[in-house]
Amino acid sequence: MQGLLRLWIALKVLLRLRHPTTPPRDETGPAYGVDPAPETEAAAGAQRQTGADPGAELGVAAALLVAAAGGFAFCLIYALDHADTQLLGVAIGVALLAIATALILAGARVFPRETAVEPRPVLAEHREPEETRVADDVSAGAQGVTRRRMLLVAAGAAGTGLGAAAIVPLASLGPGVGETMDTTPWKQGTALVTESGTGLSAADVVEGSFVTAFPQGADMRELGSPIVVVRVEPSTLRLPAGRADWAPEGILAYSKICTHAGCAVSLYRSPLSPTTTSDGPALVCPCHYSTFDVLDGAQVEFGPAGRPLPQLPLTIRADGVLIANGGFSGPIGPAWWSVRREGPTRS
């Protein structure tokens, strides 16, 4: 007993626990921070209830045994039944839920149930003398310093300089944007190939079809590589000025990378005939349904894309293979600050 008392005294000395003695601010109840009056405690329902329900104790034990069974079943299933995911999940799930049941039941019916009341810790609100002392200590630390402002400005400059120095090496993480964005593998004479690498000939592209093509010899994964090739009835074309010869036999090529956010434009709405619907042929992106009218230079017909798909001029080589007749009509892919809306790409 004496030891405990000494312990308590020692703790108080070391941790400076003490009851606050400042007057209360809350008028609705007893003094703030003071131990609550007994009637409040009772009103709050402070109590402690002991006594385990024997049925509940049995229930807890049973639940724990179910958990044990589930755990061992898990091990068995892992070893034997090719570790079937569903059985494993049921075994471990049941085991865990059984433990949960045991614990909750134990807390509700077996172990003591108690409601207690205690005062709230005093934070800064009623410790003005303390705050003032701390503030005084802080300002005492700067006593005698004369040219405070000059020092502060100099420190600010140093901080900015070092801060910039800390951030700048992050730039090493990536290549400069530079001209990379504007460069694609397509240039005059580049042959079109399919995903398997074979040349794409004009005869393969029938009216109403859509083919994904790539520049021969280039990295397929480069964003500027994939294009979509479609064939339409030439008389229905309404291409922008200057592109009259970009679509031999009505075969069109557009970048497959959506100018909204960069998904592959992998839908082609190809109406069977004008009699069936008023919707014309269009490339559609599956992400946000940007719809590009292929007859009109892939202008945006619907959806959030802000720029048309860049078009690639095509021509047909002597052996029938499709080749590019220049670079794209504009930068490919999603827009970024300062990208030009239309303009030739570099190759």
């Binding site: 000939s201 005869a203 029938v206 079809s209 190809s270 109406p271 069977l272």
Partner: peptide, 13 residues
């Protein structure tokens, strides 16, 4: 065929 809105694919494609 490429019925209704669906594109069609030739035997070359």
């Amino acid at each position: 065929i490429g019925p209704y809105f669906m594109p069609r694919f030739s035997t070359g494609e």
